[in-house]
């Protein structure tokens, strides 16, 4: 009896600390978005920012803030949230803590689609290339899922092996196409390393519903994903329909990754790093892991985008380079710890 009585207390205490945590992350997100609006090649005051956002006067400052700063202050966190959630699901699906949309080949497939769209089909507009990227992520997830699922069932290791193979293949094809088309190289290079610069705000409005759909699907699957963290026999013994849950979760991952790449290009390693932070903050249950990864991913990507404006000031570094450096360090630490 004493132990059952203790239960509500413990839960409310945990609940309270999680609520504080979420509030803290939301506060950090607001702060990082304000930094994204104010800091850069030119530094604006909060007054200038709010003036430009709420009383558009057509001044040069207002044009820069609403036309350049605002899109990236919205697209960066949405991309980070999408990649964070996609990373959580990919790591659960593959039961592999160093898996991410990158290692599943989704970013590679999206990049290949962009290069093919640009070089082969002459797509020029940013929106056109974005659509190509999203399409590429979708097709890749279907191919990787399909190949991994064929011949004797879907194993976590096989998903990653197929994904890595497909990622190498698409990178090789991208290099072949770009090497034979020097003129396109400079234009596409910036996209291919991932960035939030010069993205029209329309990309945010295109991406938002797709990211929301992926998030809702993921949250709906959260209990089944919890059970999928155990081995297949255990999960099936609990009554989890393995194939259906995996299929739907991959759909959610494709929606999230496709939206992210369509907005920002392949931003490396966000999907690898963010889930680790989320699990440390809220534990392994997906009903908390997914929202925490979304918030932390949003903050992380937005701050990386701010940092990208200053590391080689006055020139902008691609944010994908920043996240790749951070991600590589985290990956090495994870590998070293696993080996220890």
């Amino acid at each position: 009896m004493a132990s059952t009585m203790a239960l509500p207390n413990r839960r409310s205490r945990l609940g309270a600390s999680k609520a504080t945590l979420y509030a803290g992350l939301i506060g950090l997100l607001a702060l990082s978005m304000l930094m994204s609006l104010t800091l850069g090649y030119k530094i604006y005051s909060l007054g200038q920012v709010f003036g430009a956002l709420f009383a558009h006067d057509g001044s040069e400052t207002a044009v820069v803030i609403t036309g350049l700063r605002l899109p990236r202050a919205l697209i960066a966190p949405l991309t980070g949230a999408a990649l964070g959630m996609a990373g959580v699901m990919v790591q659960t699906l593959s039961r592999n803590r160093i898996a991410s949309p990158d290692t599943l080949g989704l970013n590679g497939g999206a990049s290949l689609a962009v290069v093919v769209g640009s070089v082969v089909f002459g797509v020029q507009s940013l929106t056109g290339l974005s659509l190509a990227a999203a399409f590429g992520a979708f097709i890749t997830s279907i191919v990787v899922f399909g190949v991994a699922a064929s011949a004797g069932g879907l194993s976590p290791l096989k998903i990653v092996l197929v994904g890595v193979t497909f990622a190498s293949l698409s990178h090789a094809l991208v290099e072949v196409i770009l090497t034979s088309n020097e003129a396109q190289l400079q234009q596409l290079l910036f996209w291919l390393s991932g960035a939030f610069v010069d993205r029209p705000i329309g990309l945010f409005y295109n991406g938002l519903p797709v990211v929301l759909a992926g998030a809702v699907l993921g949250i709906g699957l959260s209990r089944a994903l919890d059970a999928l963290q155990a081995d297949d026999s255990t999960a099936a013994g609990l009554g989890v329909p393995l194939a259906a849950v995996r299929g739907l979760a991959f759909l959610a991952v494709a929606l999230l990754t496709g939206a992210a790449v369509s907005m920002a290009g392949p931003v490396a390693f966000v999907g690898l790093v963010v889930p680790h932070a989320a699990r440390r903050l809220v534990g392994l249950r997906h009903i908390h892991q997914l929202p925490a990864a979304a918030l932390f991913g949003a903050v992380y990507t937005t701050l990386a985008d701010v940092a990208a404006r200053f590391v080689i000031y006055p020139v902008e570094a691609p944010v994908g380079a920043i996240t790749a450096v951070v991600g590589a360090v985290v990956l090495l630490v994870l590998l070293a710890r696993r080996a220890a």
Partner: peptide, 27 residues
């Protein structure tokens, strides 16, 4: 109920999180 041979779950899962998985078919 089935306890599989050599079952596995992530090493950073807490005991309580593991035991909670058993409630899946009831929810």
């Amino acid at each position: 109920g089935l306890l599989a041979q050599s079952p596995s779950a992530p090493p950073d899962m807490s005991v309580e999180e593991l035991v909670r998985l058993g409630r899946y078919p009831h929810q």
